[in-house]
Design a protein around this nucleic acid. Structure first.
Length: 719
DNA sequence: TCAATCCGTATC
DNA sequence: ATACGGATTGAC
């Protein structure tokens, strides 16, 4: 924002609704550039307002304001104070400065704009993700509000509390001894030099400690750190490591489930520079950490790092934009490596920090495959021999050795998918046609719909009339039951989903977990059994192989090294390249091959991809209007049926329980069918593609056609 | 000729 | 989204 033309501000003296008396504009910089919170794509820019002289002191960049916009009162953020306006008409006054807290820092304002551009979304949408709602009570309660004092950017950051810049830490032995490029990267953080790394963690690596050390290096450079992990369990581990490395007073954790008050309290502590290191889950990627000296993300392949709300930004991309804007170091770590990370290495944007190869062998467990040829009747997932005999042997040995055993099962529940025994078609709910499951062993005849929850006591196949069912998928609970029978007397612990993780004893126990929910064992697991590999690898998903390896490596990384007896049995064919990558512990090679395949097929991240979906009418209009960059191509549109791919016939009517007839007034529901088109462009034209999509959204929103069309850049679901 | 209504456009 | 203005329509 450069100096504005010096047009005298219009005093808008005609307005009589202002609170008692005519308003007078502030003597200096009377014009405020305000970002209004309206969801319309064509209003995705700033608007100029006048600042009343009485608001002069508090109306600083970053504060929340309320303004009149198109006749109604809306919230907004003051982005800048300037001398004059380009606007030809008269200016309204900012009605109210909501609070003197500058919650939107200059860096985050710029970031939010960049994220919106990158994802063809609006700043208002991204702002909702980036700035937590204000909590007035918290603001009031906090001592030392930064009131009307004129503080420079620098003096707002107060690393006082007896916590000055810590001395430069020596390079930790793990960074220097385990990773050839580790020393250079650590020193770059410590010296405040920009450097970006894709870090492949050693099997068994205590990654929270490594991240905490990296954060301490940033602190010693007088700068802040931002560390993002996929879920609350990871965050708890990271928090503990940060407390050990930094003490309790320098960092703070940020998650969505803190509640509004605590969330805002911590947010303010960060904004005021009282906490220089932030660890959090995905929304924390926007945290206003002062003077960033490190951004880091662990396990960037986890889909929890993709925001599910528009415009669906991914943590890795958000942090990349911050690293780029601030020239600050960035660390992308994990046991696995995504194709996206591989692309950053290929392009030279980041450098690989990989372990010394002999160390990988020394630290990894003994990993073997036990595919179908090892399992009698393996074509049926429900066969009692689904768990290969060697898996039982390995588990027995580990338990005898006094070690816990980890069993990874892809699906939660008891029998999460069942089919008609006769025709083998998926069993479906008679009310909503959702897939049926068996909830538990207590009620063998009772099925339950996964969509509507209706109970089904007397199943009758809609296709052939069969009344008996068979399991097509076995869940974690049933698996625990089977294994428990094989090892009577051994404690069995279940861990799945977002529920808390059980404490694993440092002794014989069997832990049955779904991927991503594996608890850490105090001295490592003696063995891990990775079941139903074919189920994972066979998913009709672009990322099936990458995702499978990621889950396997995450579990195998919790197992003791082979020299301490650690073993892993993976239930999949040894000939499959993904299984080979696990056995050889070679995430880098797998990522290289994966990226090569994506290049071959023309899929992300080798190309830029976007999807638009909506009613047939909306899609046709959109494709007609879209001004695509020169080398972009449109794939589709194809019908987008919400039902799962194994549905044997489509749901042909929307029944909403009330039986109400849809009158077709809403064009998006009227003809029922939604379409989806994919748009593919070379990476060099990504910006142009995003711009074109944003222009499309703006055009449609200006014509009041906005609704019913969803635009997604880099959609997670591709196939 | 005036008012009710539609459509398009701006929203500071 | 509204809100407003100008054009359009319809009835006196």
């Amino acid at each position: 924002m450069t100096a504005a033309p010096t047009r005298p501000p219009h005093p808008a003296g005609t307005r009589r609704r202002a609170p008692a008396g005519a308003r007078v504009a502030a003597a200096t910089l009377p014009v405020a550039r305000v970002l209004v919170e309206v969801p319309l794509a064509h209003l995705d820019r700033t608007f100029d307002y006048l600042i009343d002289e009485r608001d002069d002191a508090v109306a600083r960049p970053g504060v929340r304001v309320r303004v009149r916009f198109a006749g109604r009162r809306v919230g907004g953020f003051l982005l800048a104070r300037v001398a004059g306006s380009d606007h030809a008409g008269s200016l309204s006054f900012v009605e109210r400065v909501v609070s003197p807290e500058p919650v939107l820092t200059a860096e985050v304002a710029e970031l939010v704009r960049a994220v919106a551009d990158r994802y063809a979304g609006t700043v208002a949408d991204v702002l909702r993700l980036a700035v937590p709602p204000r909590h007035a009570r918290v603001e009031k309660a906090l001592a030392d509000p930064p009131g009307g004092a004129e503080m420079s950017e620098a003096s707002q950051v107060r690393p006082d509390r007896g916590l000055g810049r810590p001395p430069a830490p020596p390079v930790p032995p793990e960074w220097s001894g385990d990773y050839p490029a580790g020393t250079a990267f650590f020193k770059a953080i410590r010296d405040g030099r920009p450097a970006r790394a894709v870090w492949q963690a050693l099997p068994g690596e205590d990654w929270p400690s490594r991240l905490a050390e990296a954060a301490s290096a940033a602190l010693s450079a007088g700068r802040g750190g931002l560390l993002i992990v996929p879920d609350a369990t990871d965050l708890a581990r990271l928090d503990a490591a940060l407390t050990i490395v930094l003490g309790a007073d320098r960092h703070v954790t940020l998650t969505a489930d803190l509640g509004p008050a605590e969330r805002y309290r911590r947010f303010l502590a960060v904004r005021r520079g009282e906490r220089m290191v932030v660890a959090g889950t995905r929304a924390a990627a926007f945290a206003p950490v002062a003077n960033l000296g490190l951004v880091a993300v662990f396990d960037d392949g986890d889909d929890l790092l993709a925001e599910p709300r528009a415009p669906y930004p991914h943590v890795r991309e958000v942090l990349m934009l911050r690293s780029l804007a601030r020239s600050c170091p960035m660390l992308m770590g994990g046991f696995a490596r995504t194709a996206e990370a591989q692309l950053l290495l290929d392009s030279g944007w980041a450098q690989a920090v990989v372990p010394f190869r002999p160390l990988v062998r020394a630290r990894s467990p003994w990993i073997r495959a036990a595919g179908a040829d090892h399992v009698a009747g393996a074509d049926s997932a429900a066969a009692p021999a689904r768990i290969p005999p060697v898996a039982f042997q390995v588990a027995r040995a580990a338990l005898a050795d006094g070690a816990p055993v980890l069993v990874q099962v892809p699906r939660a529940g008891y029998l999460p998918a069942v089919a008609c025994e006769h025709c083998r078609r998926p069993a479906r709910c008679r009310r909503c046609r959702g897939p049926l499951r068996m909830a538990g062993p207590e009620t063998p005849g009772l099925l339950q719909c996964s969509w509507c929850g209706a109970n089904e006591a007397a199943f009758r196949c809609g296709a052939c009339g069969g009344t008996r069912i068979r399991a097509t998928t076995v869940g974690a609970r049933r698996t625990a039951e089977e294994i428990g029978r094989a090892f009577p007397g051994v404690p069995i612990l279940n861990s799945s989903g977002s529920a808390g993780r059980p404490q694993v004893p440092d002794g014989p126990a069997i832990v049955v977990a779904t991927p991503g929910a594996e608890p850490v064992a105090p001295t490592g697991y003696g063995a891990a059994l990775l079941l139903d590999g074919r189920l994972l690898l066979g998913r009709p998903d672009l990322r099936a192989a990458e995702e499978t390896l990621r889950r396997w490596l995450a579990a195998a990384a919790l197992v003791r090294p082979a020299r301490r007896g650690g073993q892993v049995i993976v239930g999949a064919e040894a000939a499959v390249s993904t299984v080979q990558a696990l056995i050889r512990w070679d995430p880098a090679g797998h990522a290289e091959a994966e990226l090569a395949a994506r290049r071959e097929l023309g899929f992300p991240p080798a190309v830029a991809m976007a999807s638009i979906d909506g009613s047939q009418e909306a899609i046709m209009d959109a494709l007609d209007r879209l001004q695509l960059p020169p080398d972009a191509e449109v794939l589709g549109p194809v019908p987008l049926d919400g039902s799962d791919p194994d549905a044997d016939h489509q749901v042909d009517g929307v029944t909403d329980g009330s039986g109400a007839l849809k009158l077709g007034l809403d064009p998006d529901v009227g003809d029922g069918s939604r379409l989806r088109a994919l748009i593919r462009a070379p990476l060099a034209q990504r910006k142009a593609l995003s711009a074109a999509l944003h222009a499309l959204a703006a055009g449609r929103s200006a014509r009041k056609l906005g609704g019913g069309l969803r635009i997604t850049v880099d959609p997670v679901e591709l196939i």
